[in-house]
Nucleic acid binder design. Structure first.
Lengths: 342, 342
DNA sequence: CCGCCACTCTACAACGTTGTAGGCGACAGA
DNA sequence: TCTGTCGCCTACAACGTTGTAGAGTGGCGG
């Protein structure tokens, strides 16, 4: 297990470079020599030392993935897809959690730990547009998320505005007119919340339905408990609505639970729409209608883009913005045709 | 960014070893020299090359975590807890997915990739007791899960039998007598399914309630859809039961959905008990009563144990078996007192 | 018969770091 | 004054690998 090229070379009676050549499929080796070396490798159970290889080559064969929290289903599914795609390319993934905290995100970006990897897929949540400059590092980086745009890095993300608009149009088409929102971030312009709320407003405007502040509920983070809290908040206000758009699935599921507790029927009294296309949204009661923003495509594309950047160190090539296609997964919580309350 | 000890040394007018000494807090350095070196480090923005350090020291500062699938909430939460604990110890985590496939698990165990890490936390799912020998490697390893016992490695896991027995006793105490099971694995003796089913049977026996094959539903994997399928299966059989024990939360949630679809009230007609203590079990409708088997403790303990093994390379010390405490999280799907159907 | 090339292999240096051995001056004790 | 010790620093080698340069053999064309 602790055997090296030297040990193999000694056993096979050749120089270490010849052993190295055998391992790396260098063409000009006599079959007899090659066989002898391979026998020695097998006898000793030799495996190349990857650390030494990394030092020589400057490549580690690993990439880093930074997400806010793995315990959030969205990021767990993202990480699963990234690891799978990386694995197909023979690359391993080092996962970091930032907690969605701006300071920890910035710290991570300049952490020496990143040296252990050839590049980073970075899902920012705490940083904002003003932090774009911090992304400008001499290190292959692919940005995910919607906190920062126009930074000079490759960016793979979803069509938030269009997807949210489509989701809202879907609810409008099914006859809903008072569509509450759970998970808004006050004053946010970009960021998932800001963009999705914009799509929502665009759809309302196009349909001639007035925008009403009183049915918009704000939350800080997008944990499940906040979806529940946001819905309780709306109910406490005493406002009326016939649909809820959860700005992500987790919020929508939390909100749906509170609706049910309050004796409000989903979808008869209130339709519920989510956003993310999570696996678990299929199995809630009722199952959740949601927008699938193309997460698997995002993961695969992020990995491919990063690996390409790593390969071609030769200067840049323009930073690219890559956008996933979305579609609405129609399920029970918001059927496409209006239902008449029983 | 590409600056090395040599660059710093040249700028500060000292030898590279002195720079190295400054970085590693070697005590005997004149303050003036130290200041000069630190200035040079700052000027050049020097950071030590971790790969070279690893080569020299034989340590990488990274550990590997192998789980079946990150998209399964249980493993996502496990990974989150492991990464958090590792982070506190200044160690990064490389995450691998095995798909719960025996061949891929074995392949991973002898993969040269592991060289990139100092040790492995291995959550086995496909391997069985007969594969114990494969765990015997000259490489720090902590085993999780309940597929393999008595292997000569540290093993951190939960009290499956006792916890399942407690869960069943809880249902019995609330007046249920026909407790169906979803997620059994036919013929399995150890493994989560086997052990939990054993706890279930022990509780029945102690209470003098007969064990009935006809209300035990088998599934292969523990995905949500299989919980739903298992429950449909039970309903199709036309058997009667007044409670369901899902061998994990995901199965229980899937089963609960099907119950609800079938117009069966939870918990009035059928109580539902899960196993895992997942975050999302708090937010289902109704919220899921479940056994929290102490997952966070398991994650923290696994990391601490592995790091200790890495530190003391000196021979072994006996392999240890570490068991987490469990507790029942009482929620709506199975209240502790029997409810009379409305 | 010479020169050239293709093939096979080796020696050496280098990637960037840290452990070891040792040099040099200063100062204390004899 | 000599010896020993301590503080400060340097040179060198080593971790295990791969790129570069080149040495030796044999075959082939001229």
């Amino acid at each position: 297990m602790a055997s090296t090229l030297h040990d193999v070379a000694r056993l096979a009676g050749v120089s270490i470079k010849t052993v190295s050549n055998v391992i790396n499929d260098y063409p000009h080796i006599r079959p007899a020599t090659k066989a002898r070396v391979e026998q020695a490798i097998a006898d000793l159970g030799y495996t190349p030392n990857l650390t030494a290889r990394s030092l020589r080559s400057g490549r580690t064969g690993a990439i880093a993935l930074a997400v806010p929290e793995l315990a959030l289903s969205y990021f767990a599914e993202l990480a699963a897809a990234v690891i799978e795609a990386a694995d197909e390319a023979g690359v391993v993934v080092l996962v970091e959690q930032t907690g969605g905290d701006r300071d920890r995100e910035l710290e991570l970006l300049r952490s020496p730990r990143l040296q252990m990897t050839d590049g980073l897929i970075f899902s920012a949540l705490g940083m904002g547009q003003d932090d774009a400059e911090h992304l400008e590092r001499p290190y292959p980086l692919v940005l995910l998320g919607e906190r920062i745009f126009d930074a000079p890095v490759d960016h793979v993300t979803m069509r938030n505005v269009e997807a949210a608009r489509a989701a809202t149009e879907y609810l409008l088409a099914s006859g809903r007119r008072r569509i509450a929102v759970v998970g808004a971030h006050p004053g946010e312009v970009i960021g998932s919340a800001g963009l999705r709320l914009r799509g929502y407003r665009e759809a309302l405007e196009a349909a001639g339905v007035p925008y009403d502040d009183s049915i918009i509920s704000e939350t800080t983070t997008w944990h499940r408990s906040n979806g529940a809290r946001g819905m309780r908040d709306l109910l406490d206000r005493g406002v009326t609505f016939d649909a809820v758009f959860g700005l992500n699935d987790t919020l929508a599921l939390g909100a749906m639970r509170v609706l049910q507790e309050a004796g409000i029927r989903v979808p008869e009294d209130v339709a519920v729409m989510g956003f993310d296309g999570l696996d678990e949204a299929q199995y809630s009661i009722p199952s959740l209608t949601t927008v699938d923003p193309g997460q698997r495509w995002i993961a695969r594309t992020a990995v491919a883009t990063l690996l390409e950047r790593i390969r071609r160190t030769d200067a840049a090539g323009e930073p690219r913005l890559l956008l996933a296609d979305f579609h609405i997964a129609e399920r029970e919580s918001a059927p496409s045709e209006a239902m008449i309350g029983a």
